[in-house]
Design a protein around this nucleic acid. Sequence first.
DNA 1: ACTATTTGGTATCGACTCGATACTTTAAAA
DNA 2: TTTTAAAGTATCGAGTCGATACCAAATAGT
Lengths: 191, 191
Amino acid sequence: MKSNDIYNHVERLSELLRVDSRQAGAAYGLQPIQLEVLHYLSICNRYSDTPKAVTEYLGQTKGTVSQTLMLLEGKGLLSKITDEYDKRVSHLKISPKGASLLQKTIPSPIFIKACEILPDNKQTEIVAALKTLLLTLLQANSMKTFDMCHTCRYNIKTEEGGYFCDLVKQPLADNEIELICREHEFKNTGS
Amino acid sequence: MKSNDIYNHVERLSELLRVDSRQAGAAYGLQPIQLEVLHYLSICNRYSDTPKAVTEYLGQTKGTVSQTLMLLEGKGLLSKITDEYDKRVSHLKISPKGASLLQKTIPSPIFIKACEILPDNKQTEIVAALKTLLLTLLQANSMKTFDMCHTCRYNIKTEEGGYFCDLVKQPLADNEIELICREHEFKNTGS
DNA sequence: ACTATTTGGTATCGACTCGATACTTTAAAA
DNA sequence: TTTTAAAGTATCGAGTCGATACCAAATAGT
């Protein structure tokens, strides 16, 4: 049981990330959490770009998220579009300004620098280890995975070579299956 | 260059850790940062238990840290003791109440659960990968290491089998070299 | 030895996070 | 059609955090 070692290292990495993210965001008047929201919106699919999904992803209350979103909208970094079929839900679209800001701040500069001096095979090892840790963490605690359609049990490959989501009963474009989804479930839910 | 992959995974782990830490601390009326301060104080040596050191470790301003410390002191989780030789500095000692609280909340429950289902060799791999990433990150950005005397260039093994710190010119007890130090520097500073 | 500067820390302010509670609107269920 | 649930917003209070100003002890400069 190395839970202590693992925890300590993740905590330290987390602290460093947070400090760096705060500094990176400060240049544009943004808080860490605001950057995280934008980042999430840049990697989620069209079923997962709602305030509710952000709430689940960040593990906060809807009130808290609502405030952050209003702030981001006020800064012109995203816009809310009411859903066509359910007028209660809105979809959050990153504005060009938001996108360019994201591109400048993520990934965090310290990670870029670190990867510059890390040999490629080491980087691969690290990614694999992080992936294992993250997946186990989610699985062991029955948390939502928020992973790509790619690995989702609802994702079906059609005869024409395209993709289809069996949950929302809609076809998916090729670039969409690389995005993360709030409904994601692994194929082999071993629990 | 997998900086994106590495960043995304660390960010996600960091979010999960934060949410969990918030929940764990909430049971005792503590914020994540307050737990982190207590945690730090539980693993640092006697030269690194000052407000200044906490400030450097957490990358915040001294004013911010001062407030958090006052709050923790007010809750009876730690006490300040003025330094014997320099009356400007104070040393922060965790109270029994603080220690028992720490023991109940760290490591975070989700990490303990994850380690229960992770095979031992996988855990070892993960710790190694995290260690590599963390060290590279610190080195690539010339940040303070805050590591154990164990690996420090100032740490000298005496003829009698004990340890001696060549920076503060003081002997170190065996259990002390497992603690982290604000003055830590690796032996081979390759930069 | 005596002033000047630096250093560790506190005090106070304002912008922001975050949870809790109450509320509104729309959709779904009974 | 009435009831209930769900997605979001509004508002409040405790806390984080940086910035600035401040204080007292230690160190430097002369």
